[in-house]
Design a protein around this nucleic acid. Structure first.
Lengths: 220, 220, 220, 220
DNA sequence: GATGAATGAGACTTCATTCAT
DNA sequence: CATGAATGAAGTCTCATTCAT
């Protein structure tokens, strides 16, 4: 693994665990196994590194979301698909998603806006399913906007409490969340509450694959 | 307002906005309108201040939760009551709840454990309702533990996105969340999905009052 | 002597000898006998310190120049008086004048402009005597502007080569420079070249006194 | 233009403008359009580069001075010739002369002595004319040593304030300085003040040619 | 010739904290 | 109560330089 790769993953781990502000550049250098000065071959500044990691992460999340949307035919299925994908992404790529979620405030205005734009792009995909499903009557929510925020908060929470070392199985967590979401948005067939297993979606293993698929990392 | 009161509220604002690590003691002093040295009349250390604020906040949350539990008769009603209370607490006491949620990791082991114990006490009250309701068949969830984590993440999210200056009405947000929770846990009467308005609980205004009720602040 | 006084004089010595850029803040702290952190009680930044020292120095030079102008009645006498004053100021307050002369380029644009304005104020007093004396025919120069620059460069040079420990007497150096200036500007009475001793000016000792007179230093 | 030529001229520009200490090796590399590591093919160290540039510059100044002395027959003419040559050298080879004048203090003792020796060699040529002219009565100065220092400071000043882009004509500046010098040293023919135009010297254009004549640069 | 990667030392500055007054 | 002065440790970042390729 190259120096940059080591820097990337240890920085994510540190930022996620201690927080960006609480992580010193000495920690970053030590984590990557390089000297303090060498660190600056791989980043312009600490903030620059953070921005880079955030953009990568959100870029990938958006790509995965688009992949999911292409696999699902209806708003309800798309919403469920996004949920499963989101849970896997936040459970398996814990560090980067936590960093994106928590460290926005550490950015200066300019870079913050760029990152927020990427995040909005993602959330817009969720919002559209809620709006579409409400429009065609396949789901029923009290308030589209509040519901979107509530669902995302719930699913993002996985990154904070799930651990691969724990006893919970992430496949199950994903299914549970999808079912919770379907219940929340009142997705029914006749009088019966729809569940993930009722939908025409790729199997859960497909979503797990998507989340762990290797991505070519851009050069420093 | 006394110096300590000003310190308390500006510290919460700063910790919530910038984060604990990113807030310097100079910021704290400036926010309270006192000198750097005087600051140390009101706290032993920066961490000590944080711990104090967290304990106050969680102490109050637990007290409010107990008040709610005493007002509701069944697991379903208690769960809905906790939800409404939680949303008001996190919407109206935004800074302190955000600080409790985000800055646990800034504490040293010893104080962290004390604060975590308070938090666990609170979450246990939620968990108990889910367990009780599952036991007596009044609600149906895929997994008690995952559901508890999911619901709490969803409801705590309010502190992050709700703003008193926004166009959303917090009363409505609270109702929406209660309805979402009831849907998620499959609370029904016959085949009909239960909603907050169907339950025997104090009116929403009562919960709002609870959340804003003045509390005597302990002396420094 | 207070910490600030010690900082002031050792900073001038260091800046004059090694240059601003080559002087580290460790050198400044050591020179003043204080710790690195304490140094920042007395300055906002290294550049801020430099600006302060420059403004003090130029402020005093301008004050001294005005004192001299008030003592002399004609352009020729004023020019000679400025010359003697300038030589004493640059010979006896060597460090600060050298710093003002050499370190302008180390300043950022904003502070640079403020300092340059003070310097221009001073040079303008020289220029006016040349212009006035040319106008009333008491002196004759090839080019007012070039002459002013040439004279000032010559007289400022004293700060670079004169040393109190050397064998030259500064009183004599001042007289020589005044005579050189009078010769350069063609100051004559009839066909005879005027010399300093021919003019109606305070004695040389008066100028020396002016240059060493204690000045109240402003608080940090 | 070769890499070394570009390095040479951009280094001079940077050293003259920002100062030696304030110029980083990254600036040097960027100025020459080469990489940081490649820079070290053209110099042993930053100081080595500075020494080289200084020796080149002083070597040329001495050569030019000797050429001038060979063209002039008397101390007065030689002094005037040196003055005109000096003004052209400092006006047209601004960067290198400024660097030599200001950055001596940046050198370590050993190299400093070598460069100072070259500078002394040059100043000695000025001193000799003053001494000779005083001895044979063709000029009259208050103090040979002080006068030499004063004249040189005055003429070197040209490098600091003259700009090719300004409105002043360097030919005129040179003539003015020569006349000022002649006045300062009391060069007369009978009772009349001598001026440059009275002397038997090559035309001003000859001196300008001398200052801009291409010199073979030694290989790296 | 040329360079990307690497580094120890040191740059300037701010940190949380203490203490005599 | 309140504070100005002081500090050791640590913050982020840049320095001139080397070396394997």
């Amino acid at each position: 693994m190259s120096s940059y790769q080591r820097l990337r993953s240890s920085a994510l781990e540190l930022f996620a665990t201690r927080g960006f502000q609480a992580t010193g550049i000495r920690d970053l250098a030590a984590g990557a196994g390089i000297s303090l000065a060498t660190l600056y071959h791989y980043m312009d500044s600490k903030e620059d590194l953070l921005v880079r990691l955030m953009r990568e992460s959100l870029g990938r999340l958006n790509a995965d979301a688009r992949t999911v949307l292409a696999e699902a035919a209806s708003p309800v299925e798309r919403l469920a698909g996004l949920t499963v994908m989101h849970v896997f992404a936040h459970g398996l790529r814990r560090t980067e998603t936590v960093v994106v979620d928590r460290e926005l405030r550490a950015l200066k205005e300019e870079s913050r806006q760029a990152v927020v734009a990427l995040r909005d792009e993602y959330e817009e995909m969720w919002g559209r399913q809620l709006a579409d499903g409400t429009a065609d009557g396949t789901l029923l929510v009290p308030d589209v906007r509040v519901t979107r925020l509530a669902l995302l908060a719930m699913c993002t929470g996985v990154a904070y409490w799930y651990s691969e070392k724990g006893e919970l199985d992430l496949d199950e967590v994903a299914v549970v969340h999808a079912d919770l979401v379907l219940a929340q948005v009142g997705a029914r067939r006749g009088s019966r509450q729809l569940r993930l297993e009722d939908l025409d979606l790729p199997p859960v293993a497909w979503f797990r694959e998507l989340a762990v698929r290797e991505e070519r990392q851009p050069a420093p």
